[in-house]
Design a protein around this nucleic acid. Structure first.
Length: 480
RNA sequence: UCCCCGGUAGCUCAGUCGGUAGAGCAAAUGACUGUUAAUCAUUGGGUCGGCGGUUCAAGUCCGUCCCGGGGAGCCA
């Protein structure tokens, strides 16, 4: 489809040829005296009836709006007077140094064209006032027009780009694992069924059970809960790989940290052990934080001012701090010996509760903690059994304020050990293809999963994961 | 799924002892020659989440359902 004659390939500023410059370009590159045309939406309008109107024009390309100064002598000034928040307009004019205090540069308009009116300013859901995040969730199709959701969107996009850049620079290859799977044992959570069967007249087997052989894939199918098993097969050929895509869990989880549809990043590295895995997780997170600090200065300043005053400091301090690495067994000792009284008991062999994780990362250490080597009975079948035969080479990265942000492990590469775990978990009749990876040139390998929305929240200081994804899907709610 | 809290104007909330509703913001209109969440004045705006019950009378009390928030479990 590429064509050397298209405009996009004939210029080094191709983005500008779509419809004139964006405000981000103007603020970075233009100077007083330049004439240009801008298109965007009205954030606010202040006017002095006797002769002048100020419109804050926003196009989402950056945090800032550009102030447009409009003289009453303009022939369609009545239109300008009728503008309200949300109107789409096109403005031609000349950049001038601002006489006002809030900005250094502004545009003196020579013409203003209204592209789209707001039909009823009083009921426009994004009125020129503060709104709660809770309310904005109910107008998720309009909330990107606010400062906060504009900023979240740009940070999310920059993070996503940095994820790919980080791995690309280190010769990891992006593998697009399937979203539909017929294996019901990927090891995490409840699954969403994918089916084209008639739910009213369902085909049945003689014993009355559903005949999934007649279903679209000829077998029971689900939305994936993880791309890990699939991406392991590519790690066993391309050495360094990662997935980055949507994931689905049909858990009835009603918390500020869970979504039914979320994005996950899962690197998988051949010939790596658990320590390599922990080092990768730490280096990766630091790279992402650094990217946001460098590329989203204005957006981060907004979060620090309006959402979480520590938003920037937290990421800056991370650059120098080593993540604390701690064995599960040592963590249990710390929890048992600390004076704090917990609601749930602490004992070796039990999974840590939220309150325990929070104590470790927030109070005991005060920065991210990598917890390693968990009891095998509380972890998944694919995690590598340690020499003590009691623990597996698993790790969780816990972050202050957000809890588990990464979960990963060194994988069991020895077929006999893997088979033993599969039998223990009653999965031995499945996953022959996964066993093949251990039969043909097996090798140590390790990887982890990073919840992308949890990362977005950690970076921005936002508290509810429903605000970290454009259109959140949670139990009993998938509007838009 | 469990435990708490909530649902009243476009938004955020108040509403006393049960007696048919109020504020701020937003909006509209007007005033002001440079505003910055402009300011000042005026005006309009209500199925009090749904259903049922108690009562002469319910926003208010009772039951139930729905929706939202916080926390827990599960996890990323």
């Amino acid at each position: 489809m590429t064509d050397k004659n298209t405009a996009a390939t004939s210029s080094d500023s191709s983005q500008n040829e779509l419809h004139g410059p964006l405000i981000v370009d103007v603020l970075a590159n233009s100077k007083p005296g330049d004439s240009l045309e801008l298109k965007g939406w009205v954030r606010s309008k202040r006017e002095s009836k006797a002769g002048i109107a100020f419109v804050a024009l926003h196009d989402g390309s950056c945090f800032d709006a550009l102030q447009i100064v409009i003289d009453a002598t303009l022939e369609n000034y009545a239109d300008v007077q009728a503008l309200s928040a949300g109107c789409a307009i096109s403005v031609e004019g000349k950049l001038v140094e601002s006489e006002g205090k809030g900005q250094t540069i502004e545009m003196q308009a020579s013409s203003v064209t209204v592209i789209g009116w707001v039909e009823d300013p009083e009921t426009y859901p994004i009125a020129k006032k503060r709104h709660t995040f809770e309310y904005l969730r109910s107008v998720a199709h309009l909330r990107p027009r606010t400062n906060a959701f504009g900023a979240i969107s740009r940070v999310r996009s920059v993070l996503s780009s940095a994820v790919h850049r980080y791995y690309h620079e280190r010769h990891f290859h992006w593998v697009n694992t399937p979203l539909i799977t017929t294996s019901d044992c990927e090891g995490a959570g409840e699954l969403f069924r994918v089916s084209t069967l008639d739910m009213v007249n369902t085909p049945r087997m003689p014993d009355g059970s559903v005949d999934f052989g007649k279903d679209f894939f000829g077998a029971e199918a689900f939305l994936t809960v993880s791309g890990q098993l699939n991406v392991e097969s590519y790690a066993m050929a391309l050495s360094r790989v990662y997935t980055f895509g949507p994931t689905f869990r049909a858990e009835n989880s009603n918390t500020s940290r869970h979504l039914a549809e979320f994005w996950m990043i899962e690197p998988e590295v051949a010939f790596a052990d658990l320590n390599d895995n922990a080092a990768l997780a730490e280096d990766f997170l630091k790279y992402l934080f650094n990217a946001v600090l460098n590329e989203c200065e204005d957006d981060m300043a907004f979060f620090a001012q309006r959402v979480d005053k520590d938003a920037i400091v937290r990421l800056e301090q991370m650059q120098n701090a080593e993540f604390e690495r701690m064995d599960y067994t040592d963590a249990i000792k710390i929890l048992e010996n600390c004076k704090k009284s917990f609601e749930f008991p602490v004992s070796w062999g039990a999974d840590l509760q939220s309150e325990h994780e929070r104590y470790l990362t927030e109070e005991h250490v005060g920065r991210p903690v990598v917890l390693m080597n968990y009891p095998k009975q509380i972890k998944a079948f694919y995690m590598r059994l340690n020499d003590d035969e009691k623990t597996v080479a698993a790790m969780d990265v816990l972050a202050p304020g957000i809890g588990e942000i990464i979960g990963g492990s060194q994988r069991e590469e020895r077929l006999d050990y893997l088979d033993k775990r599969l039998v223990e978990q009653g999965l031995d009749t499945h996953l022959d293809w996964y066993r093949d990876l251990r039969r043909y040139g097996t090798a140590p390998h390790a990887g982890f999963g990073l919840g992308f929305e949890r990362l977005v929240n950690y970076v921005t200081g936002m508290e509810n994961i429903r605000d970290a994804i454009p259109f959140p899907r949670v139990p009993r709610s998938a509007p838009f």
